[in-house]
Design a protein around this nucleic acid. Structure first.
Lengths: 223, 223
DNA sequence: CGTTGCATGTAAGGTGTTACATGATTAC
DNA sequence: GTAATCATGTAACACCTTACATGCAACG
């Protein structure tokens, strides 16, 4: 009997979402190195998940291997024109059948985490009374521009995925989702920018040390 | 000389975003307990930032106090009908002038973090080849419903903030931003649901152990 | 011959979570 | 009386990041 999690009825240890994201990445390719994995993560994972740090990819890969979800072998890197003479090696990782099973089981059984929508720009707008008007405009513009950048990048990824639609059906779904999502984010930021001007326009704004009163204190907490 | 960060030219220690979020919360009210802070966080902070765990609010409050950004005193809790006889106490926290300065400095000088948009639903759609079609529909529907719930809650918060617009100008900006943002999220989820049906409809979908090829591997990483 | 890209890790440390623990008060 | 709410913490720990360290290959 192997020591992997394949033995039935042994509850699979719950791994962090990041582990499944990396395993998922691996499920789309063959003989990928940790380094390549990060590049893929930037091009895909970044739209609906965070891009893990290099070091984390390597440590996660080790854990995944301990669980029997991936395995690796040394793969010579075919360096362009060298004709394969130079045998510089990389660790080519691959997902195992157990890994695919575990991935399917995770999707089937694990409740979806609440989406974390941390928005540093809006946090600062909320504290607008403490900021210089120009700084506030700068923050929101920057957010709008970043959103547009992400939208454009998602559009590109989407076009690439569409090229081979039958193989990338689900990826296409997600990249086009990302494209619209970031477009919306951009548009709403633009609207906030206008509204901000309306708030800031009236002569004698609140100044930098505004003392506000309570905010939404009465609202109850039943959800 | 006090040991706070007030002494000029002493570089302020950089605190995590959460600390500023809590300090910001405190800047809107007087004599708030850690417990109340969490309720406020749920009603406001939750729309553009995460709601910290109870235990973290308490530890963060302690750190903030060490820095001289907040202080507390014991406040008797006026319990409804008891006429103030029962002197059950809470720790009423308040932001200090140094805290307000630090908050303003943070907004002025600290670059805005990249927004983290982790979406568990889309992560799973991306791995759709490993999921049962019905499970996938369930996941996206749930995401749509949650988005609508958030939208409705934001709308409510927005109406409350609008009641006292002059005091809550910036809060109104943010709650109406949240309202539109979650509405967009809901609508796009609805669209994905339709597209998902189109992908899933063709007879003999890929089955649960689809082996896909590479995805966007060619895209370069220069941004 | 120096910079950039590919490639792989370890170490240290902060952040923030869950679990645990406790107790008073209020509402049913 | 007992469940829910208010209230405050500590302990343990997982997660993930930054910093550090190393080395080969290719390009100009």
């Amino acid at each position: 009997m192997p020591t992997t999690d394949t033995a039935r009825n042994v509850p699979r240890p719950s791994l962090p979402v990041n582990a499944w994201a990396i395993l998922g990445l691996l499920s789309f390719g063959t003989e990928l190195s940790g380094y390549q994995l990060r590049q893929w993560a930037e091009n895909i994972l970044g739209y609906f998940h965070s891009v893990p740090a290099m070091s984390q990819i390597y440590t996660e890969l080790q854990r995944l291997e301990r669980h029997g979800y991936v395995h690796h072998r040394s793969v010579p890197v075919a360096d362009a024109t060298t004709g394969g003479r130079n045998a510089r090696a990389k660790r080519g990782y691959e997902i195992t059948p157990e890994g695919r099973e575990a991935l399917a089981a995770w999707i089937r059984d694990t409740p979806v985490e609440y989406p974390t929508a941390r928005n540093g720009a809006m946090l600062r707008v909320w504290l607008g009374a403490y900021a210089e008007p120009d700084r506030l405009r700068e923050i929101v513009s920057e957010h709008r521009d970043r959103s547009e950048e992400m939208r454009a990048a998602a559009e590109l990824s989407n076009r690439i995925a569409e090229h081979d639609y039958t193989r990338h059906r689900y990826a296409t779904l997600v990249t086009s989702w990302a494209e619209r999502r970031y477009a919306a984010e951009r548009d709403i930021a633009e609207e906030v920018l206008s509204e901000l001007d309306a708030v800031l326009a009236p002569r004698g704004g609140q100044g930098a040390d505004g003392r506000e009163g309570s905010v939404g204190a009465e609202q109850r907490t039943n959800s």
